[in-house]
Design a protein around this nucleic acid. Structure first.
Lengths: 97, 97
DNA sequence: TTTTGACTTGTCAAATTATGGTAAATGTAA
DNA sequence: TTACATTTACCATAATTTGACAAGTCAAAA
């Protein structure tokens, strides 16, 4: 399958009428690697997501959120107790200040 | 620091009056490694958690849930948008059947 | 149908991180 | 101190991740 981030940046790239090759160049990576990110075969670094937000004129917070969600999903996707675990982490997170 | 799983198994082990050395032997690992798991310096494999549930006469589901929560927490702990990301993953998880 | 350009696939070496162990240090109770 | 439980420090290896390159597919243009 794909990732939320991959789907989103592909959509944004189309809207901006940019080629993978062009975005890849701005990210200073090669096209195949960028292609893999769009298809969810690779998850980019946080720093790359920040650059992508600028290149694609998108909201940084929104992109970083889906990027993080993709990573969390990877951890829990095949787990029986994913629901309970997520709930418990949400609670713990809220307690931090 | 520490992990939920580490705290829980330490508690269970004390209740059973077992030594780290004994639990480690049953898990077929050495004591320092088991010690690290209790203190949250290492996250054990899923399989190890299942064995631990038997050794410590605990509920398998409960231990696996905290084990998974520890891993999710590791991914999001320093992230600004952790709350939103967790929420989005919870939603996605509920949709799967 | 041949060519062109965008995108994808497969593979690989290098870098990074995880894992599991040994030896030594520390703590603690008798 | 002595004996034993636990922790810390370190290290070698294994597994995973990363970024790159070569070659492939595919669609549209010529």
């Amino acid at each position: 399958m794909g990732t939320q981030l991959g789907n989103r940046i592909k959509e944004l790239r189309s809207q901006q009428k940019l080629l993978q090759r062009q975005v890849a160049a701005l990210l200073e990576m090669d096209t195949p690697l960028y292609s893999k990110i769009e298809r969810g075969e690779r998850i980019p670094k946080k720093e790359t997501v920040v650059k992508l937000a600028k290149i694609l004129k998108s909201d940084k917070e929104a992109l970083l959120t889906v990027w993080l969600a993709d990573q969390v999903y990877n951890v829990v996707k095949n787990e029986t107790y994913a629901g309970e675990a997520l709930k418990s982490v949400s609670k713990k997170i809220k307690e931090r200040k």
